[in-house]
Design a protein around this nucleic acid. Structure first.
Lengths: 149, 149
DNA sequence: TTTCATGTAACTTATTTAGTTACGATTTCA
DNA sequence: TGAAATCGTAACTAAATAAGTTACATGAAA
């Protein structure tokens, strides 16, 4: 798993889980999908469990399942549950008391608040179901082209 | 200079330059403003020079000046000149040929393109002049409160 | 009670970014 | 013309962050 790909890797995993709603997938299996190892998977999606997006069970036959229907899981929730920040820049003060810095931070923070709201809104309109639908479309297309050949 | 603070640090520097339009500031001076060293400053704002946002001159009395009026320098330009990415997540393929990944990347890239456009628009409406105005307001306020006491 | 699975802490490794040193090129000034 | 000041940039070091790995405790099922 590459850097900064936690969101896309997690979505990859979730689509697989959505495609096997009745079958718990182990961390081991999920790890192979995103070319990493089971511990990284467990660590990465631990927050999703806390958010009720997935459930996990131990022991024989255990593993991971979606916590609810893909229609009710938005990318906004997933991103939040992963602890991802939508904007990459920092506005933490480095020279408390400096008026220039205070002005910079004030303006940037205003922008940040507004931007995060916008992004969260956009992400909340995309659901896991949209992703699985997109996947199925691609899958069916391959089938068609195979027949055509 | 902390991590992920290249944008705010650069804005800090630029406000100082806007406040001294006639006086070239050296990398050394700029470095002290953001608590780093001259080479980091030169490296960081090299892109701004290429974009015409600032100019630099060598030798005795040399240093850095704004390339044009603060009203005509937007945060969008600055961010771009710094080579900053507005969104932090990666959508680089890790398993070429995987249809699930393709679906995930397609959806995320659509979001990314739309989101970057939105953010760039918002940033293009904020200029360096807005920052200096904010700074002056704070500066004047301090003066007033000093008189009051 | 054995096996399979997660939960998690601790450690190692890889990557990225900032910091540093060094020095050449350019400009000003005495 | 020579000394001092300043940027430009390459090369290296250090620090921070994130991923990968190992190890083992916990819990569930056969």
């Amino acid at each position: 798993m590459k850097r900064n790909s936690r969101l896309s890797s997690t979505l990859h995993i979730l689509v697989h889980m959505a495609e096997k709603p009745e079958h718990a997938l182990t961390s081991e299996q999920l790890a192979t999908f995103i070319h990493t190892n089971p511990v990284v998977v467990r660590r990465t999606i631990a927050g999703l469990r806390d958010a009720g997006i997935v459930t996990s069970s131990r022991g024989h036959g255990g593993g991971w399942l979606l916590g609810r229907a893909p229609e009710n899981i938005s990318l906004a929730e997933i991103s939040t549950a992963l602890g991802e920040t939508l904007l990459p820049f920092s506005t933490a003060p480095e020279s408390p008391g400096c008026l220039v810095e205070q002005a910079v931070i004030a303006v940037l923070d205003d922008f940040r608040v507004a931007a995060e709201k916008l992004l969260a809104e956009k992400l909340s309109r995309i659901t896991l179901a949209d992703l699985t639908a997109d996947f199925r479309r691609r899958y069916d297309l391959i089938g068609v082209s195979s027949h055509a050949v």
